[in-house]
Nucleic acid binder design. Structure first.
Lengths: 113, 113
DNA sequence: AATCAACCCCTTGACAGTCTAGGTATCCTG
DNA sequence: CAGGATACCTAGACTGTCAAGGGGTTGATT
């Protein structure tokens, strides 16, 4: 018996990259903190699974959107800090625009005034 | 040289089911017409690939959300007409609510006021 | 008569992104 | 010392989308 009272499964739908990039715009953060921040900012509506997050970070690093370096957290733990690159900033801008257009189109159909 | 001035690739993000269900709420329609309608309703922003549509229709038929029967189009062609089942209506309602919450959450992060 | 565009259905194979479910290790608190 | 939170990572499965093909019909143009 599944214990998920929520409707489960894939609530990200390809928006994770944009969310992460946006999270980094205020300054470098490490993976775990990025996940916690997004969850908190959406009142726990979005769950960031680590199995989605870390591959996404690696992906974006390879694409040059973010850059990583090892550092230390406020809690004195060894952490991998990610920061936005200029390309990442540009990508964020592009994906944000795309999201706006996409969400508007879907909403126009699904949620008629 | 690619002729796509658009940014291509996967603009559906798992919303196709809901879009199709919504399209059927005004009455039965056949696959081709469903695709054309969605594209037109979004000013061609969303492209419904047939390789996405027909598997989706089959998927939803198996789940009991829609039911199909052969008929004839206005242009006198043999068409497979899909209609919404009660479960489909229920599913549409659920997915619409989910979309509203999801879109709101993403937008809150990506498009701050 | 041949051709072409639009109409209409379908399948295969590849791919990308997410999830589940594990693993490792450190630090702090009870 | 046990347990929970912090922090990173990976393998495998799954799902939805796409590209790229296939088929056939109808109506208009050449």
């Amino acid at each position: 018996m599944p214990k998920d009272s929520a409707q489960s499964s894939s609530l990200l739908h390809g928006t994770l990259d944009a969310l992460v990039l946006k999270t980094l715009i205020t300054g470098p953060r490490h993976g775990y903190a990025i996940a916690r921040w997004i969850e908190e900012a959406t009142d726990e509506l979005l769950q960031i699974e680590e199995g989605s997050l870390y591959p996404a970070l690696y992906r974006m690093e390879r694409k040059g959107w973010i850059a990583a370096e090892w550092g230390v957290s406020e809690l004195n733990r060894r952490v991998k800090l990610y920061r936005l690159t200029p390309q990442g900033r540009q990508e964020l801008h592009a994906e944000t625009e795309q999201w706006a257009r996409f969400a508007s189109a879907i909403s126009k159909i699904l949620l008629p005034a």
